[in-house]
Every structure is written in C-alpha cells, then in structure tokens.
C-alpha cells in the first residue's frame, strides 16, 4: 500500500528524529545521521518494520536523525505514518 499525502513528524533537537513521508515506490529511506555508520541499518530497520505494520510498502522516507533511541524512531514513524494515511484519530493499537 502507498500513502495518501506527504507528512512530517518529529523535530531536529538532540535525541529526536525528524521523518518526512511522501509518495514513492518501494520503501526508500534517505537517512541523514551523525551515527549512520554505527546505527544506520538499525534505524532503517525500525522505520521499515514500523511502516510495514501499517501496511505501507511504497513510500519515500526522509529521516534526519539527531541520536534518537529505537523507541523514539518507532514513535515518530508511527506518528508520520498515521498522518500520511490520514488516520491520526484512529490509532493502530496493534503496532504498539
């Protein structure tokens, strides 16, 4: 499934991550992180897994990471996914 509209979640402050989701084919992640060499794959995995739980298989992801922990990455991905799908009023409890 693709997404309906472009959305953004998160901030650029320390320990956070800002994620923008827009139309694309396949999950394509453009990650900008100072710890990319160490944790880049892990961050991408958390984003991809979380998107898949929402059934999103086609999206362009832009992520600017400022040292976010996995739980933060997951929370921000959930927020951006729900915004992009227009379902912010109906949280998907199963993803949690």
């Amino acid at each position: 499934m693709g997404i309906k509209e472009t959305a953004l979640a998160g901030t650029l402050e320390s320990s956070d991550i800002q994620i923008t989701l827009s139309e694309g084919s396949g999950i394509n992640i453009d990650l900008d992180s100072s710890v990319e060499a160490l944790y880049g794959d892990q961050i991408k995995k958390v984003i991809t897994d979380t998107l898949n739980k929402y059934g999103i298989t086609d999206a362009k992801v832009k992520a600017v990471d400022k040292g976010a922990l996995d739980c933060v990455v997951k929370a921000r991905t959930m927020a951006v996914a729900q915004r992009a799908l227009g379902t912010t009023e109906e949280p998907n409890w199963e993803v949690l």
């Binding site: 959305a7 953004l8 998160g10 901030t11 650029l12 402050e13 320390s14 800002q18 400022k66």
Partner: peptide, 16 residues
C-alpha cells in the same frame, strides 16, 4: 546550536 535546531524544527512543522 540547540536553540537553532529547535527554531528550524518548529518552522518546518509549521510549514508542514
């Protein structure tokens, strides 16, 4: 640069 990051984040959110 913490405040700068906060300012830019906020502006991007508002624009979004």
């Amino acid at each position: 640069g913490a405040l700068f990051n906060k300012v830019v984040s906020y502006l991007l959110q508002q624009a979004a």
